[in-house]
Write a protein that binds this DNA or RNA. Structure first.
Lengths: 206, 206
DNA sequence: TCGTTTTTTTACCGTTTGGTAAAGTGACGA
DNA sequence: TCGTCACTTTACCAAACGGTAAAAAAACGA
C-alpha cells in the first residue's frame, strides 16, 4: 500500500535497494549532490527512473540514507579509542584504521567530504547531537592521557582534526595525489609516513 | 564584434567581470559545480542572466576562469620555499602561510577542494603540466635538506600532503570544525597546534 | 490454477536549466 | 545632431530535471 516499502523487505527489495545505493554512492561522490541525477543513479543500478522512485521517495532520501549508513561505520573506529589502552598505540591504531578506510572506501570519504564542504546541510543535526558529544568524550580521554604524563601536551581537538585530515586526504584528494606521485599505489608510503609522523608527535618528549 | 570581450577591458567590463567572479566564487564553493546555477550567479552579481553571458561564454568558462585565477595565487607560497633558507623555518613559514590562506579565503579553498574531489575534470592538465613539476622540484629541495642532515628523514611528498591537508582542513571542513569546537574562532589554536606539531616533526632527532 | 500483491514499464508533466536572438538603451566622439 | 559601438533587457527555446499516474507484468500464496 505504502509507496516506499521499508519493513519486511523482500529479497527483491533488498537487492534493488542495495543496487540503487551502490550506484548512488558512485554518482553522488563523483558529481556531488547537485550534479547527481536520478537518471544516472538509475542507469548505474540497471533500473528505470520510476523504478528507483518506487524504492526511495526521492533524490534527497537516497542521499540521506547513504549518509546516515556511512556515518555509523565511519565514526566507529573513534568510538573504540580505549582509555585503558596505551595512548600512543591507541592513537596510532586509530590513524592506521582511518587511513585504511580512506584507501579502501574512497567514495564514502568523498561523499562525506562533499557534504561537509557544502556546509553539511543534511547532517547538521547529526554533527551537533551525535558527533559532538562523542568528539568531546574522546578529547577528554586524550586530555586525561596528557594529564597522566602519557602523552606530550597537545591540543586534543586539533590533534583529531590532524588525524582526520591527513588520512582522508588520500581519498578526498586522491585525484591530485595520483597525479603528483610517481608510484601507482600510495598506500604503503602513506602508512609509513603517517606512522612516523604521529609517532614522533605523540611519543614523550626527552 | 566578438561576443566576449577580453582585451582592452573598459571600466564597466572590469567591474562586471569582477562582480560575476565574486558571486560565482560564493555560489560554486557553496553548491558545487553541478549544483550552481547561472541564475544564482547572476542574482548574486546583481545582473541579469543574459548579461552575465555577455561577459562569459558559459557556466564552465566562469568556473575555469575562477579556478585558474585561484591556482596562481594558491600555489605561490610553495614556489617561495627557499632552498637557501633554514629548512625548519621555511617549512613552518609555509604552514603558517597556508593556514592563513585557509582561514581568510575559505571559499577559494573549498572551490579547489570540490574540483579535486570530483576527479579534477577541469584542471587535470594543469595538475600534470604545472603543479607536478613544481611539486617535484620542492620534493627535491626537501630531500636535499634531509641529505644535508638539516631535517630528519621524512618522505617529502607525503610531508607536503600532510601540510596541505591539515591546513586546508580548517577551510574545507569548516562546517564540521565550527560545530565541534566550543570557541567561535579556531584560528589561534589552529596556529598553535600546527606550529607545535610540525616543529616536533621537523626538528632534528636527539 | 487463480486471485492478490509486488514490482516494472510506459507515457507523461511542470519546472528549471544553460543558452540564444534580437530589440532596446546608453555613452561618446565627430 | 547623428552614427557607432558597448552594454542591457525582454522574450524565448530545447533539453534535462525530479517526479507522477496508471497500466502492464511478474511473483507469490492458497
Amino acid at each position: 500500500m505504502t509507496n516506499t516499502p521499508v519493513k519486511n523487505p523482500s529479497r527483491i527489495q533488498m537487492r534493488n535497494r542495495r543496487l540503487i545505493l551502490d550506484s548512488a554512492l558512485e554518482v553522488f561522490s563523483r558529481d556531488g549532490f547537485g550534479g547527481a541525477t536520478l537518471d544516472a543513479i538509475a542507469k548505474g543500478a540497471g533500473l528505470s527512473k520510476p523504478n528507483v522512485l518506487y524504492y526511495f521517495e526521492g533524490k534527497t532520501e537516497i542521499y540521506v540514507t547513504l549518509l546516515s549508513q556511512l556515518l555509523e561505520t565511519w565514526l566507529d573506529p573513534l568510538v573504540e579509542l580505549d582509555p585503558q589502552g596505551d595512548p600512543v598505540e591507541e592513537l596510532l591504531g586509530y590513524v592506521r584504521h582511518k587511513l585504511d578506510m580512506s584507501l579502501e572506501l574512497p567514495a564514502e570519504s568523498k561523499l562525506f567530504a562533499g557534504e561537509i564542504l557544502q556546509g553539511a546541510p543534511h547532517i547538521a543535526d547529526y554533527l551537533k547531537n551525535d558527533l559532538k558529544p562523542l568528539f568531546d568524550r574522546k578529547c577528554s580521554v586524550i586530555q586525561y592521557w596528557i594529564a597522566q604524563g602519557k602523552l606530550p601536551d597537545i591540543d586534543p581537538a586539533h590533534l583529531i582534526f590532524s588525524i582526520w585530515s591527513t588520512t582522508q586526504h588520500y581519498a578526498d584528494f586522491g585525484a591530485q595525489v595520483s597525479v603528483l606521485l610517481d608510484e601507482q599505489d600510495p598506500a604503503a608510503r602513506a602508512h609509513q609516513h603517517l606512522e612516523k609522523m604521529f609517532r614522533r608527535l605523540l611519543s614523550p618528549v626527552n
